[in-house]
Amino acid sequence: MSTILAVDTSCDACSIALLKDGQVYAEFIQAPRQHSQRLLPMIDALLKKHSVDLSDLDAIAYGRGPGSFTGLRICLSVVQGLAFSVDLPVIPVSTLHTMAVGAVNTGLAKDQDLILVALDARMEEVYWSLYRLQDGQAVPVTEEFVCSPSDVPGHGDLGFVAAQNLIKVGAGCHYPALEGIDAASEIRELLPRAEHMLGLAQYALKEGQVHMAENSQPVYLRDSVAWKKRQRIR
């Protein structure tokens, strides 16, 4: 039975969870702009509380994004340091996929329903993706996108779904273009939580989808912000 620590600071919260002997122990605090101050003490307390040494872990899962750039890097930097120190593998877990699992856990979705997950990417854009509930699992239907909210409703995979077979989650749903998509239910306040990463991490570990800490990276999705290149004269 695997022992896994999961960490996510992609939004305003510090969220960590520990899987040990099949039990899940989670800590979650709202800590805007305090991730780096709160995260390691939280991890230390959770591990000590459940008598787990860092080296007892089989792997550390990290919320790889998309999300706040700085938040993603604080999470990964701490995880890189922890994993590298005692040679643990790390597992990147999508924040959107994590939220889809969170949506499934609410029990609002029926088998074969689609789950639209959207985070506010600021700059009038959303990070979003689509999942299908299949045999109790949230299975990705599309890749992950960053785009204008107005481009979401026209996406092919959303076109043929009936409102009663769709649920929408995440803060990105506040944009009018997403509000306009009819769905059976909406949970705008749903956040990526580390305890929802554990199932995905366990599966990845079983499949050998792990990385060395030094090869692990965030997934920003937005890779070309309008950084202006300099024009030379001659």
């Binding site: 780096s36 995260l39 390691l40 230390d44 860092l54 750039f69 700085t70 890097r73 604080i74 930097s77 701490v78 995880v79 890189q80 340091g81 922890l82 590298f84 120190s85 005692v86």
Partner: peptide, 19 residues
């Protein structure tokens, strides 16, 4: 730069904790 500092500081502090 705050974001740049954050990376080295978090990695460094976590390494020391792990060791």
């Amino acid at each position: 730069l705050v974001g740049a500092l954050m990376v080295g500081a978090c990695i460094g502090r976590a390494l020391a904790y792990g060791w």
